[in-house]
Each structure stands twice: as C-alpha cells, then as structure tokens.
C-alpha cells in the first residue's frame, strides 16, 4: 500500500490561472520556459485584456466554483531519518509527499478568438 501525504505548506500562497484555448507556442520554437507571455491590462470595467505577440485577447475574471490546490512533489522538511535512525524506506521518502504550494480561487479566461493587431507603420522621415 502506497500512501502519499498531501499537506499545506505554512506559507501557502494564492495563485491565479490564466486559461486560454489551444496551446501557446514560442516564436523561436525554443519551448515556453523563460519566455515572455504578454502584457496583462485591465479596463475600467475590470475586463482583462491580454496582448500576446501580435494578438489581443479579451477575457473575463472567473471565481472558481471548485478551487484548485497546486501540488508540488515535496522534499519533507523533517529529517531524512526516521525515528529509529534508519534510512527512510521508499514509502516514507519525499517521493511520497506533496506540498500544497498554492491555492487557486480565481482564473482569467480568454476563450474568445484572439484578434490580430494590425500595425500600419507610418513612414516618418
């Protein structure tokens, strides 16, 4: 029997989900990590506007009926030895522990079709 313990970290944060249709791709096909996503504006009505590349997306703020916990495979803060001083066996090791790094109660949803931004470059001389 495997048991995985999920426990809140003392400093659990509140995160936000940005949800959009389809999949993001980086311009240079070098993966998403380390890349800019875009600029997040809000208008005076509280509507989120996201500019990604040469697209603009209009979204809405949604309070989640069913919130999420963000689980991260954890290294336990306790000693890596069990009470009797033996090395921990597989079932007690950090592999079988998840920390709740954050909770998510709100998401920004951008499911409308992205509008292309057309730039007219005016030639100034």
């Amino acid at each position: 029997m495997v048991q995985i313990v999920i426990k809140k970290r003392s400093d659990t944060e509140e995160w936000t989900i940005i949800e959009m249709q389809g999949e993001l791709q980086s311009r240079y096909a070098n993966g998403l990590a380390g890349n800019n996503i875009g600029d997040l504006h809000f208008n005076k009505n509280g509507v989120p506007l996201l500019i990604i590349g040469h697209h603009i997306l209009y979204g809405k703020v949604v309070s989640l009926e069913k919130p999420f916990a963000v689980l991260v495979k954890g290294i336990s803060n306790e000693n890596n030895k069990s009470k009797n001083g033996n090395e921990l066996n597989d079932e007690d090791s950090a592999e079988n522990r998840y920390n709740i790094q954050a909770v998510i109660k709100t998401k920004l949803v951008f499911t409308t079709r992205p509008k292309p931004i057309i730039i007219h470059v005016s030639k100034k001389s």
């Binding site: 944060e13 936000t16 949800e19 959009m20 389809g22 996503i37 954050a102 920004l108 499911t111």
Partner: peptide, 9 residues
C-alpha cells in the same frame, strides 16, 4: 485549454 499558473496576479 492551456492553464498557465501565475504565482501572483
């Protein structure tokens, strides 16, 4: 849908 997890927002 893609869900992007923002640490703060």
């Amino acid at each position: 849908n893609t869900m992007i997890l923002l640490e703060k927002c």
